[in-house]
Amino acid sequence: MSDGCGAPQQTATLEADTGDQTVVAGKVRSGDQPVGGAFVRLLDSSGEFTAEVVSSDEGDFRFYAASGTWTVRALHRQGSGQAEVAASGPGLHPADIALD
């Protein structure tokens, strides 16, 4: 486990068991193509910044959140996009983002 704030490798291959973690994860796409290198932010229900990662080459991102309504927002040279997700509790909550 990391002691610091650098994000772990971003991948969609989740451990079989997310344990007690509330995970918000998904893929950034432009059309049908995954977009790597996008800056993906997790915003809380008031729109406040919570965390940011860079999507993997396959467009994947992942956050360890808490219960609540979240917005994931992606920024890339090709464009931006966002999606909302309601995380009810521990487990995987998928949220894919399409770039405009």
Binding site: D3, C5, P8, L42, D44, T50, A51, R62, F63, A66
Partner: peptide, 20 residues
Amino acid sequence: RSPDEFSGKLLAPAHLPQES
């Protein structure tokens, strides 16, 4: 830190497993 860390809801930034 983020509001959820400040309030005690999260222990770490949300791109990390919740430990610390």
